[in-house]
């Protein structure tokens, strides 16, 4: 069967907001005094975007790729995480990652690149201009959030290391350290967690290396100190706490693909027409909305078809799920 790819006309203008609008809102927020910390703690008012203004990364440019959706509360973003390295319950990571120390941290660049090496995190991210990007985040389990990330395009970083012509894929590896990540004592997944992208997916301007959210460093439970964010794919592709990035000629095997090849494919693009064998992917529960309300329709490529559909032109998305 054919998969209907949304044309840009189908995407509501409200979903992709012009940068000027964002800047305008920022001005408005400043004018009415929402910068003050006292008010920021006030919580969930309609101007929840204002909350992103405070913190370490307060004056970052807002990306034109940002979604205009209502942000998910910080307490939900940082309190409900699939991060099995800190336990298999979604409430475990917030508790068990409290004492996790991500400083010092180094990232190794390996494989098909001209300039491999091991870099400490500060040096690693120094060359890149950080920005704030508000992305929709869709978990394979059928729930979604809207998260203001702080990061830089992965493409900027890839260019820096000069991949060779053999670099067809990029593999990412999470820290494996049972002392610091107590959930790894249990063999629920084959550690370390790994993920992969095709090089053109990795180079897509939407693909983000995140170092923060809500204007501050990443909370430990969200993948401190550095993680991937691929907004058009299911959340598990957005690997956390990265220690290694390897450029490869052959398609790497990702963790979930390894343990459930029928359920989790290499691509794992958000697609309401390709169900997970055990549950439908047609709808999603937006975290923060009342539980008795209907769920929302899931969009192809999580609403980012305009930016990424071309990557899969001519591919059978049912086979390459």
């Amino acid at each position: 069967m054919s998969i209907i790819i949304k044309s840009s006309d189908d995407i509501l203008p409200s979903e992709i907001t012009d940068q000027k609008v964002f800047e305008g809102r920022r001005e408005f927020i400043k004018k009415i005094g929402f910068g003050s910390a006292a008010l920021l703690t006030g919580g969930h008012i309609s101007l929840s975007h204002a909350k992103t203004a405070a913190g370490k990364y307060s004056d970052l440019p807002k990306s034109a790729f940002s979604a205009a959706d209502k942000l998910t509360d910080f307490s939900d973003v940082s309190g409900y995480n699939n991060f099995y390295e800190f336990g298999t319950s979604k409430y475990d990571p917030a508790q068990k990652a409290k004492s996790f120390n991500s400083d010092p941290w180094s990232v190794a660049i390996e494989g098909e690149v001209e300039k491999p090496g091991v870099f400490n995190l500060e040096d690693f991210i120094k060359p890149y201009a950080l920005e704030e990007r508000i992305y929709r985040f869709r978990c394979v389990e059928g729930w979604s959030m809207v998260i203001p990330w702080v990061g830089f395009p992965l493409a900027d970083m890839i260019k820096q290391f000069k991949p060779t012509s053999k670099a067809k894929y990029v593999e990412f590896v999470t820290l494996y350290d049972t002392k610091r990540m107590p959930g790894q004592v249990l063999k629920v997944l084959p550690w370390p967690y790994t993920e992969g992208l095709r090089i053109d997916e990795a180079m897509n301007p939407l693909t983000l290396m995140a170092v923060g959210l809500y204007g501050n460093d990443l909370p430990n439970q969200n993948g401190a100190p550095i993680r991937l964010v691929v907004p058009w794919k299911y959340g598990f592709k957005s690997i956390k706490s990265i220690v290694k990035i390897r450029f490869t000629e052959h398609q790497p095997l990702s963790t979930w693909n390894k343990i459930g090849p029928k359920e989790y494919g290499f691509y794992s693009n958000v697609n309401p027409q390709v169900d997970h064998p055990r549950w439908s992917q047609k709808t999603e529960r937006k975290i923060g909305e009342p539980f008795w309300a209907p769920k929302h329709d899931t969009q192809i490529f999580n609403g980012y078809a305009e930016q990424v559909a071309h990557l899969y032109a001519g591919m059978d998305l049912k086979k390459n799920f």
Binding site: D76, G79, Y80, K90, Y91, W143, R285, I287, F291
Partner: peptide, 10 residues
Amino acid sequence: GLGVNPAETI
């Protein structure tokens, strides 16, 4: 008190 995803909890 039903957590972040009350539907799932219930």
